[in-house]
Amino acid sequence: MPINYYIFLSLTLFVIGIIGVLTRRNAIIIFMCIELMLNAVNLLLVAFSKMHYVTNVSKVTNAGSDGQLFVFFIMVVAAAEVAVGLSIIVMLFRNTHSVDVNFLNRLKH
């Protein structure tokens, strides 16, 4: 597969995530769209690591495995982020009885 197809697929998934963040008001769905964007980036990293492997395998034996380990660390950070973020949303819901992000503008004044 040419790398272009993977670039365009990841871009499409990333932009769908951005549109979700911009158009929805439910904090949980915004959070899920952020996860979608992280996954689009992960897919692109894996595709690039395989491309790097094909071009550099004669020089380095395990070329491209760095990219896959980066994906692994992104997943680690995403799991920690979800735990903290969801507890913030639960706290927000307990205080305001809603998960509408338009509430959060009260921090402004």
């Binding site: 993977y6 670039i7 491309m51 094909v54 395990n62 896959q68």
Partner: peptide, 16 residues
């Protein structure tokens, strides 16, 4: 990104 080089990715083989 339309005119990037058409590099191929390795699909089902490769053990990294």
């Amino acid at each position: 990104l339309r005119h990037t080089e058409k590099q191929m990715t390795e699909m089902v083989t490769g053990d990294i």
